[in-house]
Nucleic acid binder design. Structure first.
Length: 291
DNA sequence: ATGGTGGGAATCCCA
């Protein structure tokens, strides 16, 4: 079986490329991030025509995660237990004409309603594997509320994932997606360029490493340990021709699933040409389970 | 050279 993950940066803008990748790579289950659409906007027909069922969660033009599978798709979950939400700050900025005043409280704040859970995690059981398509919050800037949200989100996911292994040490779980963390200095073209930025802080790196502490193996590093192996290149500044990339797309596997992974491929060619996503697919080859 | 790219609900926001 072949499992893959790919941040496609709008599934509607790239549906032809995504379906062509599925057929070319013979991927059975694809975890998709940044679909950038609502459920009713997802181009399901193109996937079904290629033989894939789709589960998706998307609330707006932002975020959105999906799983496409040709080996079944069951027990879909549109968030993980304890997944934190995020609300945009609503206070208007002070100006010369309008000095800072007490902002109008949002109705949600008046009612003390928790912030909405974003479309960043989708779970489904496909071919006997519990697959999670994950789009970890970016963080924006150190000290930004989004940065605290990112750390809380990763911590809550770790707690949930640890719980799944506690409940069933033989569980077949794949945590795949865009983690928005650069775990090692050798995962970025120039560490100095990220000094003072998100993705490389000790807190983010510890939050990422905590999944290994919980018993999961990051199988893409296990099989592709070479330094400066990237999965993302910015659209700007000719980053891809200059190979100024980042390694931020990963797959943590539970012990029993990690045992089955026989190889990993990063499909670097998918970054080439007109209409490419800024991320490329990461593909896992998974052997049949031991009988 | 103070821009640069590419998505989206778009004369702005987000990555």
């Amino acid at each position: 079986m072949r499992l893959a993950t790919w941040n496609v940066n709008s599934v509607r803008a790239r549906v032809d490329r995504v379906v062509a990748f599925l057929e070319r790579s013979q991927t059975d289950v694809l975890a998709i991030q940044e679909t950038k659409c609502r459920d009713e906007q997802f181009p399901v027909a193109a996937f079904e025509a290629a033989g894939y069922e789709v589960a998706h969660v998307g609330h707006s033009a932002w975020n959105g995660v999906a799983i496409a599978s040709r080996v079944g798709i069951a027990d879909v979950a549109t968030s993980f237990p304890g997944q934190p939400g995020f609300a945009k700050p609503t206070a208007p900025a002070a100006t010369d004409d309008a000095p800072a005043e007490a902002p109008e409280p949002e109705p949600a704040a008046l009612l003390d309603v928790p912030p909405p859970v974003e479309a960043r995690a989708l779970g489904a059981t496909c071919g006997g594997v519990r697959v999670w398509s994950l789009y970890v919050p970016h963080g924006r800037a150190i000290g930004d509320p989004h940065y605290a949200y990112k750390l809380a989100w990763l911590g809550a996911l770790r707690d949930a994932a640890a719980g799944w292994l506690d409940a069933d040490p033989a569980a077949q779980v794949a945590l795949m997606g865009d983690w928005n963390v650069i775990p090692l200095d050798t995962d970025v073209y120039d560490p100095a360029a990220f000094a003072g930025h998100t993705h490389v802080t000790p807190a983010e790196r510890e939050a990422f490493a905590a999944f290994a502490d919980a018993g999961y193996t990051e199988v893409t590093r296990q099989h592709l340990p070479a330094e400066h192996t990237y999965t993302y290149w910015d659209y700007q500044q000719l980053a891809f021709p200059r190979n100024k990339g980042l390694r931020i797309d990963f797959a943590y596997a539970s012990p029993r699933l990690a045992d089955r992974v026989t190889g990993v491929v990063i499909d670097r060619d998918e970054r080439k040409g007109k209409g490419a996503s800024d991320h490329v697919p990461v593909v896992l080859d998974v052997a049949a389970p031991a009988t």
